[in-house]
Design a binder for these strands. Sequence first.
DNA 1: AATGAATGAGATTTCATTCAT
DNA 2: AATGAATGAAATCTCATTCAT
Lengths: 209, 209, 209, 209
Amino acid sequence: MKKIYHKETFDNIPEEKRLRLLQASIKVMGQKGFSNAKIEDIAREMGVSYGSIYTYFATKEDLVHTIITMGIEIQRKAFEPLAEYVDTFSHIQSILERSLKIGREQPELICLWHESSLPYNAQFSDHTSELYRQGVLEWKSVLKKGVSRGDIREDIDIDTIAFIMNAIASQLLRYNMSDFQKSKRAVHFSRNLDDPIPDIMENLKKMLA
Amino acid sequence: MKKIYHKETFDNIPEEKRLRLLQASIKVMGQKGFSNAKIEDIAREMGVSYGSIYTYFATKEDLVHTIITMGIEIQRKAFEPLAEYVDTFSHIQSILERSLKIGREQPELICLWHESSLPYNAQFSDHTSELYRQGVLEWKSVLKKGVSRGDIREDIDIDTIAFIMNAIASQLLRYNMSDFQKSKRAVHFSRNLDDPIPDIMENLKKMLA
Amino acid sequence: MKKIYHKETFDNIPEEKRLRLLQASIKVMGQKGFSNAKIEDIAREMGVSYGSIYTYFATKEDLVHTIITMGIEIQRKAFEPLAEYVDTFSHIQSILERSLKIGREQPELICLWHESSLPYNAQFSDHTSELYRQGVLEWKSVLKKGVSRGDIREDIDIDTIAFIMNAIASQLLRYNMSDFQKSKRAVHFSRNLDDPIPDIMENLKKMLA
Amino acid sequence: MKKIYHKETFDNIPEEKRLRLLQASIKVMGQKGFSNAKIEDIAREMGVSYGSIYTYFATKEDLVHTIITMGIEIQRKAFEPLAEYVDTFSHIQSILERSLKIGREQPELICLWHESSLPYNAQFSDHTSELYRQGVLEWKSVLKKGVSRGDIREDIDIDTIAFIMNAIASQLLRYNMSDFQKSKRAVHFSRNLDDPIPDIMENLKKMLA
DNA sequence: AATGAATGAGATTTCATTCAT
DNA sequence: AATGAATGAAATCTCATTCAT
């Protein structure tokens, strides 16, 4: 069902090497952008000849497709719905922390997603839809459960709050994407620049409880 | 103080034409991206020969700098702090509506900002910092006034709520950026896909009042 | 009706230069073959940068199409039906001499036609069909008139003799195409290697008159 | 005396397989041309890995040399002087039919010869000289015997008629080489497109007897 | 100042050949 | 001997920039 963007040879190489090559691609593409990243740059980061890239992928575009689709696959577990929490707000906090953490550990991946969401990269952004959907549904589920548990007030609209929570999480994902993003923090916060989550949680509790 | 990225000749052409050329550049660059947009594409959209671009700008990079700095200037008024509102929530709603409107009317401008916020475009993103700062300070000001007026509860942290409001406004800015963004709406909302602001306002009032 | 394989820019350059560029292409392509001839080789022979070739033609393949179609156009007059002859055999001799002459003066052109008649070059050979047709019809016309004049015996089939005459003319066209062709002459003739036409004519007269 | 272009290993493989590999090479090279035929294409048609080709031949060029020399060897018997005919014109007809038949059954072989006769393929064409020579001598022999037998008129020059007969046979060899060649038939003949030999023979008899 | 053809550095891609297994 | 992944020289083609008019 899912379209394959790599040649068979890429399946034949050892799992360990395959993941390493993908991570190297993600790193270079994320740091330089799809157009600016040169095949030779990527090959050097991969530690292979650039000819090898063409034994794995027919074109550069196919490589981008692959790192997005397979990159998503690799990272999907990072976004898997978190295990049950007794306390709704602990659960919410975990999700926000997860976003901040992924963005801090894999800034290149965030760059890829950010770039692929531009309209002229529509062919790549399709792959991330499912992951996005999963994230939104998780928010709705957590909020709904919070209401039924009595942790969250009854008079709010879950869809709308999920939209807001998603907006916050998106900001946190990008929180470490670039120096530009980092510089923005000081406009927002005079303290706790590195971790705004405690403050966010404290205020969310007041508003949502 | 501010660095100039265009040649003198660009100042000599009539205001009307100059703005038209900039809008054409913004359109093409926004639709195709900095790297993919070719000088020839831009010249064609501008309605001039591509030799002319080099009589106005020394390099393609200078053109990008210019459309971002001057584009910002052109659009700055769109982001100028709104005139005083008697009601705090009317003011908040106006700001959100402004974001949605700009994103709807000038999707290419949003694309430019989106692209320029990527780390490898740091040289361009500097120009938008001031505009970003202005937006955040506006939120803080509105919220602070709302608290002092008694429209908004006293126990929230203004910095943090400004961060959240900014996250929401950012989402609304991108709400019409690409088909991908548009497709996301349906994951969030089952109704009112085109204008989520009434729902957002209703819920914000409950939480912030 | 006829498909154009060059960009407008190629029409804009002076006639003299355009023909020179085509002749240079024909020379290199004829000498090295379509695949072996490098764009850089051609550019060097043309006396322009290889970038220029791409301002005239979108692809190398388009260049080949162009030299074949326009090369044909240029040479068509060389194959134009010869002016009326009082004597049929003088006419026949002129046609054969014309073939030998063209092949001697433009061996590269003959190479192009030879190469383009290979099955994997079918896309190029289409262009020469009309010229071929013209040549065959000329033979039929000359032979028919020869019969009606009483120069040529009545009991032969014109179509078949035209086929034979065409076969002879084809051999003469290739007579100077390559050293290999030249070396073949000695297998055929012990004397008059350079110009077999007198002998051919003498024998044709005996057989056809 | 004759230069060998293959490695010893190629002699070690069974006759049957060796011929199969050669036929596969001839097929691919004939269909695509020396330059366009990729080692990988040939290997796939051969049914071996493309690494194997390099255990048999040092270079692609050696492979071309080999298929031409050995291909000639394989096909030489097809061109071997035909057994004695009582009737000269029967003999002539057999030779023409042999040409038509070989071209119909082995169009790729004809393509190889056609391509190898181009000047930039001189290194390959040398191999076919002997075969060509053999063909011409056969014509001379048949014609000479025809004259001495009284089947053919005495007043013609045997060398010249052999040249003409060779030209006809060459056309027949290529008669099925490509769709282009096939399309040419209709220009020549309104009937008997597939087999022009009866008509040719009938007219030859009139002219030569 | 305006034009658009000309240039060539640099990118992607191909593919004959090598080499580890 | 056989395999097919790995290599990199060399090809095609792109496009920012220059330059003659």
